[in-house]
Design a protein around this nucleic acid. Structure first.
Lengths: 203, 203
DNA sequence: CGCCATATGTTTCCATCGTAAACATCACAA
DNA sequence: TTGTGATGTTTACGATGGAAACATATGGCG
């Protein structure tokens, strides 16, 4: 019995859950508006009032769908992780898996951060203390599975697999954060070179 | 009189400004209080009012020393970078330089983030669009020099030095961020193992 | 010594924020 | 038809960052 579907159906029919009362699937509309704001306004705070205005509804209406602002941000963060995972999976497939595929997922990670800075930041800044073990996919699931698979490809030595996985993750995450915080300026070539040092230099 | 003794001497040369009027070097006191709050209250916002209350002064008094809140945070961020650099330099020396020293600076980086999460985050989140080329040391200067030196030790191959330097930085920065954001749980051993993969496994 | 410009701190005020509470409105089931 | 529960609105509150007007001490200059 799902009271919320996994992916954010922005335009299409809301299946059966969340029927249209006054607005017609406000929850999804709010999330869509939030993502748009994050994408356009990379800087600046995401305020409830502005968000509600975008959707054409008054501020406190959002509280019928989210207990508080944190919950709304959590929803946006989860969607961000889902998108990141999708992009990585796509990159992995396009490169045909293996070492090259692993490297491609790493590059996709950094590229996503560069293309959607606010969403990326939100997705990782949000801390989930002990989120009641949301039985539904955590969103970052896909990314994690790809990471393990890729590590298996590049470092068949099982002993150091854990450290290697963390190494790879930390590398791309750090590169992404340094780019977002303007400590390093984005460049396709640069990312490829740096990521290649760990992920295997196959081209 | 324990108000100006801190190592918070922002301006290397007080020259002529900032003598004691009413309060006696409020600027330094505010920065010290801000650092303390960041250290204790790791979470939560750093509000002007609370900060002013800590120092025993009324909120808008801070505006005599900082144009706005951003500037105050910038000052705190700079102090954070300075401390990080100092810790790294100390680690480098204690390890006797070389490969082991380089690795030590990497570990010190992650440890600093773990020990002072809010300050670390602040230091790197603050973006300096084009800070008028603050003639005074940028604060991160020490860290940068150590990075270059360390890379020279580990990767004498000059051709890939740039990529290697970025690689090392991204690794420790990413590890730090993942720990702060609770994606990875801190462990001395783990950090040593992961950092060792890039910084040279000398123990 | 006396005066005053200036650096410093205080009071008051305002727009904005998140959000709780009371109220209004709509769809549908009995 | 009427009631019931889900949804949206209005109003109100406390806290925020910040501007403006006011108060006060300091030190230079006569």
């Amino acid at each position: 019995m799902a009271d919320k579907d996994n992916s954010v159906n922005i335009k299409k029919a809301p299946a059966k859950a969340e029927r249209a009362y006054h607005h017609g699937d406000l929850r999804a509309a709010v999330i869509a508006a939030g993502l748009k704001r994050l994408a356009e306004d990379a800087g600046g705070e995401l305020g409830l009032r502005a968000l509600a205005r975008d959707v054409g509804v008054s501020a406190t209406a959002l509280y019928r769908h989210f207990p508080d602002k944190e919950a709304l941000l959590d929803a946006l963060a989860e969607e961000g992780l889902r998108r990141l995972g999708a992009l990585q999976a796509q990159a992995w497939l396009k490169a045909g898996g293996g070492r090259a595929g692993f490297k491609a997922t790493g590059i996709a990670y950094v590229r996503f951060a560069h293309d959607e800075p606010a969403l990326f930041r939100l997705s990782f800044t949000r801390q989930m203390p002990d989120r009641k073990t949301e039985e539904a996919g955590d969103g970052g699931e896909v990314a994690y599975n790809l990471l393990r698979a890729g590590v298996g490809e590049v470092f068949p030595d099982a002993e150091s697999a854990d450290a290697a996985a963390l190494h790879a993750w930390a590398l791309v995450h750090g590169l992404a954060m340094l780019i977002l915080d303007r400590r390093v300026t984005w460049s396709e070539a640069m990312v490829e070179r740096v990521v290649g040092l760990t992920f295997g230099g196959v081209d």
